Amino acid sequence: MDVGAVAVLAGIAAFGGMFAVLVGAYGLRQARRVSETGVRVQALVKRYPGADRAESALLRPLLQFVTEDDRVMEVVCPVPSTRRQPFSDGDDVHVSYDPADPRNVVVHGRERLGPERVFIAGGALVVLFSVTLLVVVIAGR
């Protein structure tokens, strides 16, 4: 494979890696912003209407809360139920919501920032691999 083709492939991979880094950083920033500056309220955990118990265990529950301007919001929970911390129908959880877009919520104590960190780390590794590949190919010319 000639140097030009390798350079193009490395550039495309580096672009994809940088995109992954930016997506992860944006997700972390949004979660932190909503947690710190959002309105904190209690939300009621509800299972999907019409879903039986087996189905509702697989689906993310609904969160119902009242905004500052007295609107009742019902949003899909941004995090799934786990064995360690299950969401049961009728539970109360603390959430923060963005007043500009109340559908954007963060469940306190269950932020799950791991996927964003994986995007950042994976993207950085792809960029590093791309640059290393490019340097090795150019140096071997």
Rank of each mutant, 00 (worst) to 15 (best):
E68G: 15
E68I: 04
E68N: 11
D69K: 13
D70F: 12
D70C: 07
R71H: 13
R71W: 11
R71M: 12
R71A: 13
V72Q: 10
V72Y: 01
V72G: 00
V72N: 07
V72R: 12
M73V: 14
M73A: 10
V75H: 01
V75W: 01
V75E: 07
V76R: 06
V76Y: 00
V76F: 00
C77T: 07
C77Q: 08
C77G: 08
P78G: 03
P78V: 07
P78T: 06
P78E: 04
V79P: 05
V79R: 07
P80H: 05
P80E: 05
P80A: 07
S81F: 01
S81D: 03
S81Y: 02
S81R: 09
S81C: 05
T82V: 08
T82L: 04
T82M: 04
R83Q: 06
R83I: 02
R83Y: 01
R83P: 01
Q85A: 12
P86L: 10
P86W: 04
F87L: 11
F87C: 04
F87A: 02
S88T: 03
S88R: 15
S88D: 13
S88V: 01
D89Y: 07
D89H: 15
D89A: 15
G90K: 14
D91N: 14
D91T: 02
D92P: 11
V93L: 09
V93Q: 07
V95E: 06
S96T: 07
S96D: 02
Y97H: 08
Y97G: 08
D98Q: 03
D98I: 00
D98W: 00
P99A: 12
P99W: 09
P99C: 12
P99E: 07
A100I: 09
A100L: 10
A100H: 10
D101E: 13
D101Y: 08
D101W: 08
D101G: 09
P102D: 03
N104V: 15
N104D: 15
V105Y: 01
V105S: 03
V107G: 01
V107T: 00
V107E: 02
V107Q: 03
H108G: 01
H108N: 04
H108D: 02
G109I: 07
G109K: 05
G109Q: 06
G109W: 04
R110I: 01
R110F: 01
E111A: 08
R112V: 00
L113Y: 00
G114T: 13
G114I: 14
G114S: 09
P115G: 08
P115W: 09
P115K: 14
P115Q: 10
E116F: 09
E116H: 14
E116D: 14
R117G: 06
F119C: 14
F119M: 13
F119P: 02
I120H: 10
I120S: 11
I120L: 12
A121I: 14
A121N: 04
